[in-house]
Nucleic acid binder design. Structure first.
Lengths: 195, 195
DNA sequence: CGTCACATTGATGCCTCTCAAAGCTTGTGG
DNA sequence: CCACAAGCTTTGAGAGGCATCAATGTGACG
């Protein structure tokens, strides 16, 4: 989900744009991969369902990020992709991407780079999920996401945020309340300030 | 940690072998990346330490797998790498790898492939960590690791396995006992048979 | 044979999940 | 513009499960 050098993608032959309405499903787990994607505007997220039907958010995608690269070498998508809001994406058919990799070393390198970044982000998420204490988990995630000013603006709802970090929304609400009561954070709508 | 096409790696100019004794540290979190690696023989694992000093196993590497690819574009390693047993590895200096990517499209593609596989594995681990129930988590992991015969041979100790799946070793021992008592698994030393 | 780390089991407590209820926000249609 | 609905946010009460601390058994290795 690198944000750099999307130019090489946009120029790719065979790429085409697509619009998604809020709530629309781009692909479902099990589908034969028919593309990797670049989000131009809007917001989408990747999700899976556990045994008991509970939704797990795997990642939230912001404009400029690519996603579903890993499906290039797969026989099926491993998760669902749903639009959180009305979104515009670019679709890159796997065949074209694979050909482009062979032809354009610069492109291949940028793809390797993007995957490397995603891998590190994924490891970070995985590590965060290993933190059992809710308060520590929340502050860790906020610290990772916050800019230099220590402020973190959430893209979606708190409920979605809870799902992303692997907490129930109730637990998240309570934890945020406690943190605020302790003076460790300050909330203003969807922005959270670390203190 | 793809196991295929390591030939292209071994032929890379600038690559050199290295031996690791059991317990030896290959690189530490924070070090400036000086290579990515291919494990030839032995076993190593990637780890990080949490706030309270508890060790978290990020991944266990088996012969034929490459690791630390993501460091190619980083300014520092994000975890430690330790040899579990006496091991032999091949070292690929980042500069050589990056040059090879530019020159050799086939190599670049194989690297993209390896990263894609690792990303999916990482997502799987992340998902597994989202399973709160110990029994379900253990059976899920065993199911993922087991071959067609439903048998899963652990590379390391049960304690290491517990660390990999994010449980305390006590919890793992208890869970395995219960599963065995219920007749859902059968243990024989380090092999676990799913029933 | 002694040491050390792993494996196992017991007791206890805390933390998060779960179920529940009510207030709040947002959007939609009449 | 209002009223209603739907979903988010918030708080409460209770229970279950895993972490934690503790003690002992077991195996490998020098």
């Amino acid at each position: 989900m690198s944000r750099e050098s999307s130019a090489a993608f946009q120029r790719m032959p065979g790429a085409y744009p697509r619009h998604l309405d809020a709530g629309e499903l781009l692909f479902a787990r099990g589908d034969v991969p028919w593309g990797m994607f670049l989000l131009e505007t809007g917001r989408v997220h990747l999700r899976r369902f556990g045994r008991n039907g509970e939704e797990m958010t795997i990642a939230t995608i912001s404009p400029g990020q690519t996603f579903a690269e890993a499906s290039l070498f797969s026989t099926a998508y491993h998760c669902d992709c749903v639009a959180d809001e009305s979104s515009r994406i670019l679709v890159f058919p796997p065949r074209n991407v694979l050909r482009k990799i062979d032809e354009d070393a610069k492109f291949a390198k940028s793809l390797v780079h993007r995957l490397a970044i995603q891998l590190q982000e994924c490891r970070m998420r995985s590590e965060v999920r290993g933190i059992r204490n809710a308060e520590e988990r929340v502050t860790t995630v906020l610290g990772l996401r916050a800019g230099k000013d220590g402020c973190c603006r959430l893209a979606g709802t708190l409920k979605q945020f809870a799902s992303e970090i692997g907490l129930t929304h109730e637990a998240l609400y309570r934890t945020l309340s406690q943190l605020e009561a302790k003076g460790r954070i300050k909330r203003e709508g969807r922005s959270i300030q670390l203190l």
